[in-house]
């Protein structure tokens, strides 16, 4: 699904292959490049060099618009700070990503209704984010990420602002989505959250220091202390 070859920017010569259906956890200390890796894979960040293949597309050869099209079609985001739009209701927040695709209003309504039902938040559809708890907000954040049926969900510390029971609920949700076929890449500091995934990649100072799928990963001596 994803291949990164000699990717450099904050990252140093990253080589990474991700298959469809994987649940990847990216770990590492602050400043190691976890979020940067996520934003590059999510095609939000263009400041890199190297080769990037995504679903048979040579992303490194695409212009910004085409990258945005790929992002819009195949990728969903979940953020640590939820990033729900404050002045929109839950329903409207879920409708936002769909409104940027060529989908008719009635079809959008049906898709939002389906996701509200699936996440059991129908009763909250008219509430504003400020009227929800942190866990509920992140639930909506995840719902927003999957409403367009993406092939890949990128989650940047999705439980960072939640207490443990809320975090567990969200991670169970990711697991379920993964089991249903969605590829997930999460960034986390939590070993518990990492245990929900099937592959953990360690980053340090922009280098991949550990990747079970690529045991030959070379780390410069200055990093591998």
């Amino acid at each position: 699904m994803i291949q990164l070859r000699n990717m450099t920017y904050v990252l140093r010569r990253i080589n990474l292959d991700i298959q469809e259906g994987e649940f990847i956890t990216v770990m590492g200390p602050s400043g190691s490049g976890k979020s940067t890796l996520l934003s590059i894979i999510g095609m939000l960040d263009d400041s890199w060099a190297g080769e990037f293949y995504f679903l048979e597309n040579e992303v490194h050869k695409l212009d910004r618009k085409k990258r945005s099209d790929l992002n819009r079609k195949h990728i969903g985001f979940v953020f640590q700070s939820y990033h729900l739009l404050d002045n929109l209701t839950v329903y409207e927040n879920l409708d936002v990503p769909l409104s940027y695709r060529n989908i008719s209003r009635s079809q959008r309504a049906s898709m939002v209704a389906e996701i509200l039902d699936r996440f059991q938040i129908v009763g909250k559809k008219d509430l504003f984010p400020s009227q929800l708890s942190g866990g509920q907000q992140q639930l909506v954040g995840v719902a927003r990420a999957v409403v367009g049926n993406p092939k890949l969900i990128l989650a940047d510390e999705p439980t960072g602002n939640l207490h443990s029971s809320q975090a567990k609920e969200i991670m169970e949700l990711f697991k379920k989505l993964n089991e249903e076929g969605t590829t997930i890449i999460q960034v986390t500091h939590s070993e518990v959250n990492a245990s929900y995934g099937n592959r953990t990649i360690q980053l340090f100072d922009g280098w991949i220091t550990s990747d079970p799928a690529n045991p030959q990963t070379s780390t410069p001596s200055v990093v591998a202390r």
């Binding site: 618009k65 945005s68 992002n71 953020f79 990033h83 990503p97 940027y100 695709r101 927003r144 367009g148």
Partner: peptide
């Protein structure tokens, strides 16, 4: 956020 969610 909107751009991350696909806004052109």
């Amino acid at each position: 956020v909107r751009m991350a969610l696909g806004a052109t």
